[in-house]
């Protein structure tokens, strides 16, 4: 009896060994894309739209797994430590691969060194918005008013480590102001209190704000990109409006764990590029108000440079503001 069991087990083991990935063509099973934020947020949506098309090219499903927590660093840590076989990749963003080293001194990964960058997916522009009866007409007046009334004005953000927090930290450091900074849990409550006029201004991604702006519930002063957005063509860029240093976009990019074979990274990059060229995918991304990188910006090298420059840019700004998470 025992012998028969043993031989059956041995047979099973052989079978299993045979089915192990050998030299077969990558990918032969579904790919997990970790999104380090809750489902339904801007990064999640971009990951799902891009992933859907990448799956067509790769011939395998791209399954989004949301691992939210600690400003996206929980999911990023898990991705950095995953087996570098190309079956676990992640959608990182400005926070996890730019601001995190300054915010989290105990960070368990190095954004530049612990990942094999695949390519930039899409960025969402940042807007400066205020409650609808805020007394400033344009960005210049806004800056002047905030400077003159530091003790009265309140900024709202979605918690330390959030995009709205980091970008408004940059804005405050450029303006040289220290207003009240009111912390909320997520962008929903921020928007609620901004529409209600409980707080004065905020910085956030265009996706979250478009409908409130179009219906006149909040005021917008500038968009922090080089060019105006097609979604909100009347909103001046920060350069036009007189605050050229405020150039920031919440970029999202795909990363694989360090040590992933270059062929696999190349294959993933090709699938990403193809997705970004697809008309329907482009249309859906543009509807969100996102910016799709040009051909040069989509390479692995370009992403690697971007990560390094972003870390270098955010570290002094956030350190000066004196906030660190954990």
């Amino acid at each position: 009896m025992l012998k028969r069991v043993a031989s059956a087990l041995a047979g099973l083991a052989c079978l299993v060994a045979a089915s192990l990935p050998a030299a077969a063509e990558y990918p032969e099973r579904p790919i997990t894309m970790i999104v380090p934020f809750a489902a339904g947020g801007p990064t999640d949506i971009i990951a799902r739209i891009v992933g859907e098309h990448m799956a067509k090219t790769l011939g395998q499903a791209v399954v989004v797994e949301n691992v939210a927590g600690a400003g996206g660093t929980t999911g990023s840590t898990r991705a950095a430590q995953a087996k570098p076989d190309g079956y676990t990749i992640m959608m990182g963003h400005m926070g996890t691969h730019g601001a995190a080293p300054a915010l989290y001194p105990n960070l368990k990964y190095d954004p530049a060194k612990d990942f094999a960058p695949v390519g930039l997916a899409a960025g969402t522009p940042i807007l400066i918005v205020a409650k609808k009866d805020f007394p400033a007409k344009d960005l210049k007046e806004f800056v002047a008013y905030v400077k003159a009334n530091e003790g009265k004005v309140n900024e709202a953000h979605a918690g330390v480590g959030s995009v709205s927090f980091t970008t408004c930290t940059l804005l405050q450091s450029i303006m040289g102001t220290k207003t009240g900074r009111v912390a909320y849990r997520g962008t929903g409550p921020v928007l609620n209190d901004l529409v209600a006029g409980q707080v004065d201004f905020a910085c956030d991604q265009i996706v979250n704000l478009v409908s409130q702006i179009q219906s006149g519930n909040i005021k917008v002063y500038a968009i922090a990109t080089e060019q105006r957005s097609d979604t909100l063509p009347n909103v001046p860029t920060s350069k036009e409006a007189g605050l050229p240093e405020f150039q920031v976009s919440a970029w999202n990019a795909i990363f694989a764990p360090k040590g992933t074979a270059p062929e696999i990274v190349a294959k993933l990059n090709a699938a990403l590029v193809k997705a970004l060229d697809d008309e329907n995918t482009r249309k859906r991304l543009l509807e969100l108000g996102s910016v799709i990188p040009d051909t040069a910006g989509r390479s692995s090298d370009a992403l690697h440079k971007l990560v390094e420059s972003e870390v270098a840019r955010w570290t002094p700004v956030l350190k000066a503001a004196g906030v660190t998470a954990n």
Binding site: A39, G40, I45, S211, R284, E287, L288
Partner: peptide, 12 residues
């Protein structure tokens, strides 16, 4: 998020 993915911007 679901609305946004379907191309509807939820809002007023």
């Amino acid at each position: 998020g679901a609305m946004t993915i379907h191309g509807i911007v939820p809002g007023p």
